[in-house]
């Protein structure tokens, strides 16, 4: 049986891994390769590297560290942040990344999804979505790495999920912003609604604080993977303990 995936997310700013609360007040939590290697050895199923400063400031992730990560670890990883063209995507994929994830650039230029899927295959095209309730509907947000530039994109989240899948996205990461960094549990309602709308693999993001949050999001929202950052970076939850516990709770897990 296909295992549910546990995915540490490493937010990268200026070559270091950082973590903030509700996307703000970032603190340094370690070096990129050092954390990547540690998580791979502890049993992470996949890693996501998200350059949170890339989109607002117009910079892009350094392909150079992509290669160093690809050399260091033997599990798949995805690179996100500031990828706005086929050339940006190609540099990261040929540098050794297994997937690239686009968020704000996809909202600004949806045709980029079609172009990337055609060029590299849907399997490596992930669309990230930052979403929260505005005026009674879940809606997408742009440029969430920089609070001064964060804006509400008026697309409805569920409509956007259907559109990006039609355009060739091979996986969706749904980050529920109201839950991000506060460790009170994933947004089960929103993720379950997204699951209904999403015919490709769906990854939950935002809110993990305890082991039962992972069990709940797998069992109640039927997501394929659960992404988390601070609980792993701050050693609130150890990945081997989490995976053993989930397995005992009846969740299919790679041990």
């Amino acid at each position: 049986m296909l295992a549910r995936r546990i995915i540490p997310c490493l937010d990268v700013r200026d070559g270091r891994v950082v973590k903030g609360v509700r996307f703000q007040n970032h603190e340094d939590v370690g070096g990129i390769e050092e954390l990547a290697r540690r998580y791979a050895e502890e049993g992470a199923d996949e890693l996501v590297f998200y350059d949170i400063s890339a989109s607002p400031s117009g910079r892009t992730v350094e392909p150079e560290w992509v290669g160093r990560v690809a050399q260091a670890i033997d599990i798949p990883f995805c690179v996100a942040g500031g990828i706005r063209s086929l050339e940006h995507a190609r540099a990261r994929l040929f540098g050794g990344a297994d997937k690239i994830s686009i968020n704000t650039p996809a909202l600004e230029n949806p045709g980029l999804i079609d172009a990337m899927a055609k060029e590299f295959g849907s399997q490596c095209v992930v669309v990230g979505i930052d979403s929260r309730v505005i005026d009674g509907d879940w809606r997408c947000h742009k440029n969430t790495g920089d609070p001064s530039k964060t804006s509400t994109e008026h697309r409805k989240t569920l409509d956007w999920i259907r559109e990006v899948v039609d355009r060739g996205a091979g996986e969706i990461v749904l980050n529920c912003m109201d839950q991000d960094g506060v460790r009170e549990g994933y947004d089960i309602d929103q993720l379950a609604a997204a699951r209904e709308a999403c015919s490709v693999p769906l990854i939950a993001s935002g809110g993990a604080g305890a082991m039962d949050h992972f069990r709940d999001v797998f069992q109640k929202a039927d997501v394929d993977g659960a992404l988390a950052a601070s609980v792993f970076h701050k050693a609130v939850i150890a990945i081997p303990d989490l995976k053993a516990w989930l397995s005992a709770e009846g969740v299919e897990i790679r041990l």
Binding site: S122, V200, D224, R254
Partner: peptide
């Protein structure tokens, strides 16, 4: 009913 297409992830 085993899950979404494509087959992506760790399997036995």
């Amino acid at each position: 009913s085993d899950g979404p297409w494509p087959h992506m992830g760790w399997n036995t």
